[in-house]
Amino acid sequence: MLPQPPVWFIAIAFIAALGPLVFFHELGHYLVARWFGIGAETFSIGFGREIAGWSDRRGTRWQIGWLPFGGYVKFTGDMDPASQGARKDLPPEVAVRSFHTKPWWQRFLVVLAGPMANFLLAILIVAGLFAIQGEPRTPPVVNMVQPGSAAAQAGFRPGDRIVAANGRGIDDFSQLSEFVMLRPGADVTIQFVRGGQTFSTTAHVRREVQRDRFGQTFQIGRLGIYATGRDYQRVSPLRLLPDAAGFTVRMTRSMVDGIWQIVTGRLSADQIGGPLKMAQIAGQQASLGLVDFVWLLALFSINLGFINLLPVPMLDGGHLAFYLAEAVRRRPVSERAQEWAFRGGFAALLTLLLFTTVNDLGSLGLWERLERLIG
């Protein structure tokens, strides 16, 4: 079992991971806004009081806040960094560069550019790793079936080639593993090819508690089938970006899948992690080496892009929902409705933060230690 990295190392790794991802996210907003002639008053990495910064010739203040958990771009005319409202007292020469005076579709694209920048960054990182390491590939062919496992009861044999799970195509064994891991205790329908014929069977995924290299436990689903060893295949330069994009799409789909499993009660909400868990994982991966840490950056970038697309007020997805409503109604949603929506979104995000923090502290063993002290 590997020792946990020290707290100072975890903090540095988390800031080193989050800072560039937030910068790239906000840069997406900023560049598309400039394309549409929208001015920017502030470009901030981190919140709170400025600890370092400078102003460019366009009047934008580029700054670093003391609280390194996010960032924002405050556009010309915004009442606050969240772009929740526009100032009414702007002179005409300033109003023309204001975010809120632009057509809904321009505001939509400016907001969408942030999450899309994170997906693009993930694709570039993965493409670079594929170019250096090659693309990890494992054919979805059964090499061994564990006796008494869910796969054995479902009738799988060595040589079977998995082609689909619950109707979802399987091209690589890792796709099957990711699909099954999110479904402990579920019944899944699997299609496979044996002797040139396609068959279908239903398997009841077993629950398995695992412990990672740092001693942390978590629950996953297991079928009990094993494939041949993974190898790294060289990727032609023309296939680097498409293959990296395919990887990003699969990871995003896994996140959607995981959220759906939690919402429907098939996966425990205890599996949801928050900032403390992310920081711990960043420190752990950094301690394993540069390549592991860079892989984590790609996954964090996908996660940041995906979460910001959720239709929750206060997130980019909430703004996008308002702009789509404006397009349908041919007029903006009322300021009062937006205000209440943002309040509700803030309350929901705060509740989620508290919930995930409790989960994180539990995964760090705090509650067990308190129980032992009290007992």
Rank of each mutant, 00 (worst) to 15 (best):
P3T: 14
Q4V: 12
F9H: 11
A11Y: 07
A13N: 13
A13S: 15
F14H: 04
F14N: 02
I15L: 13
I15R: 06
P20E: 01
G28V: 01
L31N: 01
V32R: 08
G37D: 03
A40K: 07
G53D: 04
S55V: 13
W62N: 03
G65E: 06
L67H: 09
G70T: 09
R87P: 00
P91N: 04
A95T: 04
S98G: 09
R107G: 03
V111G: 02
L112C: 07
L112G: 05
N118H: 07
F119G: 03
F119W: 02
L121T: 07
A122K: 10
A127N: 06
A127C: 05
I132K: 14
Q133T: 10
E135D: 00
P136N: 11
V142L: 03
V145C: 06
A164L: 07
N166G: 04
I170V: 15
D172E: 11
F173K: 10
D187L: 13
Q191D: 13
G195W: 09
Q197M: 11
A203F: 08
R206G: 03
R206N: 12
E208S: 11
D212Q: 08
R213Q: 13
T217L: 01
F218S: 05
G221H: 12
R222D: 00
L223N: 07
G224K: 12
G224D: 05
G224C: 08
Y226D: 01
A227F: 15
D231S: 14
Q233C: 00
R234I: 12
V235D: 02
R239F: 08
L241S: 00
P242G: 03
D243T: 05
A245H: 03
V249T: 02
M251E: 00
R253W: 14
I259W: 15
T264A: 10
A269S: 15
Q271N: 14
G274F: 13
M278I: 15
S287A: 15
D292P: 15
F293T: 11
V294L: 12
L296P: 05
L297N: 09
L299R: 10
F306S: 01
L309V: 06
R329S: 05
R331A: 08
R343S: 09
G344P: 14
G345I: 11
A347L: 15
A347W: 14
L349D: 02
T351W: 14
L352D: 01
L353D: 00
L353T: 15
T356I: 08
S363Q: 12
W367A: 05
G375P: 00
